[in-house]
């Protein structure tokens, strides 16, 4: 810190860990919401790969509604609702006999992205009202630290949501029903529940959260709508769920890790390390793959994997 003090406002090499932490908080929110949503969906025994499309639709809708109404929170809500509609569409198609949930997901990803680009053309130029942030760093005298602690409400909601989902899945009747549908469709049926209805609910909830994750991109960080806004955050978040073993709390940590890894490249460059930035930029993907290789095992089914999930059946 002596260096930082000497340079006044600059942080020097201390900026790298700070940048990674700040980046983790900034970048992780969309991953967090999508992965929590996908976690719910997958716990009910279905995988929705279409959340990338939902995320992009959410980003566009949130931005558009915020622009038209002047209220970013209405935008967030609208993004969630559009996400829920996409979730319902996914569930409706999947309830048809012999229809593959992974394929429907890929189709909805394409459709969602296409639709968002189609409708969103006139929204690229205008500026919409942004979501506010909460300043948790008022006590610090180091401006970059103060800024790193300027966090968005959605992130805080995500922080609360993750343990709440863990608790809810474990301790509530809804959680039990959801898990039953994911572990054994027959058991759920025997208990008198409609598996399709449960999964409809779970997919809609997942879509709702993914839509909100998208609105974070357009309404807070980076905070604008355009066609390059998502660079695969939605689909990567789906990967994070498997990586996080279908545990909402682990989804939270995985999102933070992923966000931090994404901030590593720019943070290093800001102190003058510019060699091999493409490889640094790919760090999150390499990291995810490596951790999946280390933690997966061919002999037993993944711990925590819902037995009904198509991707984990072998």
């Amino acid at each position: 810190m002596a260096v930082a003090a000497a340079a006044g406002t600059a942080l020097g090499w201390w900026g790298v860990p700070l940048g990674v932490v700040a980046g983790a908080v900034r970048v992780s929110t969309p991953f967090l919401f999508v992965s929590l949503g996908e976690c719910l969906t997958e716990r009910s025994g279905r995988i929705n790969l279409g959340l990338e499309g939902t995320l992009v639709m959410g980003a566009m809708t949130g931005y558009g509604v915020s622009y038209l109404t002047g209220s970013p929170w209405l935008g967030v809500l609208a993004a969630g609702l559009v996400g829920a509609v996409f979730g319902a569409t996914h569930a409706a198609f999947c309830s048809l006999p012999r229809v593959n949930d992974i394929a429907i997901g890929i189709a909805l990803m394409l459709f969602g992205i296409g639709l968002a680009f189609y409708i969103g053309k006139p929204l690229i130029e205008p500026q919409a009202a942004m979501l506010p942030s909460i300043n948790l760093g008022w006590w610090s005298s180091v401006p970059p630290l103060r800024d790193a602690l300027r966090v968005n409400v959605l992130f805080l909601i995500g922080v609360v949501l993750a343990p709440a989902l863990v608790w809810g899945l474990k301790n509530t009747r809804w959680g039990l029903i959801l898990r039953t549908a994911g572990e054994s469709a027959d058991a759920a049926l025997a208990l008198g529940y409609s598996v399709n209805l449960i999964r409809l609910g779970a997919t809609m909830a997942g879509g709702f959260l993914a839509g909100i994750g998208g609105s974070f991109l357009s309404l807070y960080y980076p905070g604008s709508w355009n066609e390059r806004l998502s660079s695969g955050q939605g689909i990567t978040a789906v990967a994070l769920v498997i990586f996080a073993r279908w545990d909402p709390m682990l989804c939270f940590w995985a999102s933070i890790l992923f966000g931090g890894a994404g901030a590593f490249g720019p943070a290093l460059q800001s102190v003058g390390v510019t060699e091999g930035y493409y490889l640094f930029n790919a760090a999150p993907y390499i990291l995810t793959l490596l951790i999946m290789i280390i933690t997966c095992s061919p002999r037993r089914t993944l711990t925590g994997a819902p037995a009904e999930l198509s991707i984990t059946r072998s």
């Binding site: 020097g12 800024d147 980076p222 955050q233 720019p266 800001s270």
Partner: peptide
């Protein structure tokens, strides 16, 4: 002048991240 290369002609999240890293550096 501190430079950050994003490696891409259009990638808003990376551009925002680069801008923030630079601003953190003063």
């Amino acid at each position: 002048t501190q430079v950050i290369f994003t490696g891409d002609w259009s990638m808003p999240v990376k551009e925002a991240e680069a801008a923030n890293s630079l601003i953190d550096q003063g």
